[in-house]
Nucleic acid binder design. Structure first.
Length: 274
DNA sequence: AAACTCCCCTGATCGC
DNA sequence: TGCGATCAGGGGAGTT
């Protein structure tokens, strides 16, 4: 499941191979993702344009084009963005293909089609339905202890739901939320506005720590994730609670528990997290 | 505001 | 061996 660190790795592997390339053709499978791929709009925006930059906001990746357009994407649950030689067979569930020069393609593969692929002008993009609702990216300088604290004090939701809310913090998903709460020693069931300053500071540090470790370990390949070169990450070996129900806590030895919050699994140590 | 429920979708897994 | 049910979960929509 691609979250912020995985999207960051995709962006970092895309950047050196994509910037400066010209897009010569766009194809689609015809099958809709979360919403239909608008092939005509996609082609109009991309064909003939050169890639100027590749960046990330939350779990979205953005490819800035030389014609003032931007290609915006989300990998959903199972999406992959992959470089491939044009002569290589396309794997199943390839839903979009950008042809670059010299027989190279950038392919969007997504079995479950929960992803997003759209184009906007640079002016439209920040006001788009995808980006306009996002809170702050936690790797932005503005994501300070004070910023987090103000949001915590303002919310009566439990910490799991609070941290999963992309409208508050953009980029955390199930894995990194569970891990951040563990490292902060906070129960996923605790209400946000009961955290207080000392614990708020720990939570802020834990969020940054798990995201930076995730990137340093090249992402968490728990199920489908690979970067744009097709390489798996290694962070799945560095998890303390996620996916470890019934196993011993690496800190205290207690059994890791699982509960369901908002229809999603939460993993936590009942002894270390209060 | 927040907490529900349902839905999108495929593939892995499990019980019979 | 096979087949249907269940689960995985990011995000959006609709309802309470």
């Amino acid at each position: 499941m691609p979250e912020l660190p995985e999207v960051e790795m995709v962006v970092r592997t895309l950047r050196p191979r994509l910037v400066g390339q010209r897009i010569t053709k766009v194809e689609s499978s015809g099958l809709p993702l979360r919403r239909p791929i608008e092939l005509r709009a996609l082609s109009r925006a991309c064909v003939g344009a050169r890639v100027e930059a590749v960046r990330r906001i939350g779990k979205y990746w953005l490819i800035d084009l030389s014609n003032d357009h931007v290609l915006l994407g989300h990998l959903g649950m199972t999406g992959r963005l992959l470089f491939a030689a044009a002569r290589d067979p396309r794997e199943p569930h390839t839903h979009a293909v950008l042809t670059l020069g010299r027989g190279v393609e950038l392919r969007y593969v997504d079995p479950r089609r929960f992803g997003v692929l759209r184009t906007y002008t640079q002016a439209e993009a920040p006001r788009s339905p995808e980006l306009s609702v996002l809170g702050m990216d936690p790797l932005e300088p503005g994501f300070t202890v004070d910023h987090l604290q103000a949001m915590l004090d303002d919310s009566r939701r439990d910490l799991k739901a609070f941290l999963m809310d992309q409208g508050r913090i953009a980029g955390l998903g199930n894995i990194y939320v569970c891990e951040a709460l563990f490292h902060a020693g906070l129960s996923p069931l605790r209400r946000a506005n009961t955290v207080g300053r000392a614990r708020g500071k720990k939570l802020h540090a834990a969020i940054l720590q798990v995201l930076e470790a995730g990137i340093a370990n090249r992402g968490t390949s728990f199920s489908d994730y690979v970067d744009a070169d097709g390489n798996q990450g290694g962070n799945q070996h560095a998890l303390w609670v996620y996916g470890r129900e019934g196993e011993a806590c690496r800190n205290c030895g207690a059994r890791i528990k699982r509960l369901t919050q908002a229809g999603r699994s939460t993993f936590y140590c009942p002894k270390c997290q209060k």
